[in-house]
């Protein structure tokens, strides 16, 4: 396609557009989102829709406050993607104000106040999540049980009523509907001195490798991520380095002491490791930019996830790891510039 330009080139590749890239990432998230909703109930759907609504609203308000035209920014898909990623990280029965605060903070502060798409140094979804995690830690630990484990389920109207007014049908308590996440259980039980095998046998949330139900969501996220690599929307460097380093370092500890260190597969398929590897750490705006840099960046996140999960104060560490490495990205970029043609090297 030719395009009007002051100087060459006069043609442009029709295969990629920033909007197209965003919507492909959204598309890749959808199967996992559907499975998540199927397994964990209507709350997931409500969270997602509410998050998207708040994200687009905040984006529109901020764009007009900044005196910028709504289009093309509002339609670029980036706000929707941020909203979906944050909704993935929230408990399915999160109250409406939790979702709203997280998403609004992500869009207003972490994205628009820095100048909008392309100018934010930190991943907005992760900033939103961390704000909630440090402000409302209790709400974030109340995860619904997967449908297969729960004796009680909420239908759509009951879920709506809980999310928006906090009232449950008579005779039901929130404790009956929720439990700690597999990572959470593992962490607290390990601290109490139990062995991994014992913990996994004793608690019904565990499946064969990770949490029951979670495994399907993670496998679909993995499939979506691989599809994105195949479509060349993302490059393989960050996911491979992230999962590779998490796998390697957890294998090392697992090999030394399998009784007190969860298996590498447990690490990969629990919590947000897969989501983080393919959908969050790969946010190009906040990641390292050269391919060598991306490997260091991804590996750093993987290592930090392991450190936070093993010795930190939170059950999962994806959000903090991503934000810490966001901070390191400019430095990584500085030291990992590719060798330019004709500069030194064996051929120069």
């Amino acid at each position: 396609m030719f395009k009007k330009a002051l100087s060459s080139p006069h043609i442009h590749c029709p295969d990629f557009s920033t909007r197209g890239l965003m919507f492909q990432v959204i598309l890749a998230l959808l199967p996992a989102a559907a499975a998540y909703a199927w397994l964990f109930g209507w709350g997931v759907v409500i969270n997602m829709l509410l998050a998207i609504f708040v994200a687009l609203g905040s984006e529109a308000v901020m764009l007009s406050l900044r005196g910028r035209p709504l289009q093309p920014s509002i339609g670029d898909g980036s706000a929707i993607l941020t909203a979906m990623l944050l909704a993935f990280a929230l408990p399915p029965l999160a109250p409406w104000w939790l979702t709203t605060i997280g998403v609004a903070f992500a869009i207003v502060v972490a994205k628009q106040l820095y100048g909008g798409l392309g100018f934010n140094p930190f991943n907005p979804a992760m900033i939103g999540y961390v704000v909630l995690l440090v402000s409302f830690p209790r709400e974030l630990t109340l995860w619904s049980l997967p449908a297969s484990l729960s004796t009680q389920t909420l239908d759509l109207s009951a879920t709506l009523s809980y999310v928006f007014s906090g009232t449950l049908p008579p005779g039901l308590t929130i404790d009956a509907l929720t439990s700690a996440t597999p990572l959470d259980v593992m962490k607290t039980q390990l601290r109490l001195g139990h062995a991994t095998g014992e913990i996994m046998a004793a608690h019904p949330v565990f499946g064969l490798v990770g949490g029951k139900g979670w495994i399907w969501v993670n496998l679909l996220l993995l499939a979506g991520g691989v599809w994105l690599i195949y479509r060349r929307v993302i490059s393989w460097h960050i996911p491979a380095a992230l999962l590779g380093s998490l796998f390697t370092v957890s294998l090392l500890f697992y090999a030394l002491d399998p009784q007190h260190a969860p298996s590498p597969l447990f690490h990969l398929f629990s919590g947000a490791a897969i989501l983080g590897a393919f959908f969050i750490a790969t946010d190009p705006v906040t990641a390292a930019t050269s391919n060598i840099g991306r490997i260091w960046y991804g590996a750093g996140i993987g290592l930090l996830i392991f450190v936070i999960r093993s010795w930190g104060g939170f059950p999962d560490g994806v959000a903090f790891s991503v934000l810490l490495m966001n901070m390191a990205a400019p430095t990584i970029d500085h030291y990992t510039r590719p060798r330019v043609f004709g500069h030194g090297g064996k051929d120069g």
Partner: peptide, 26 residues
């Protein structure tokens, strides 16, 4: 045949340019 007002979006540092650069610039 020519797009008259191509919409320019912000750079998202996706790195496709670096992959395409024959001189290995960023």
């Amino acid at each position: 045949e020519m797009e008259q007002h191509p919409t320019v979006m912000p750079c998202i540092r996706c790195g496709k340019c670096a992959d395409a650069c024959p001189v290995s610039l960023l």
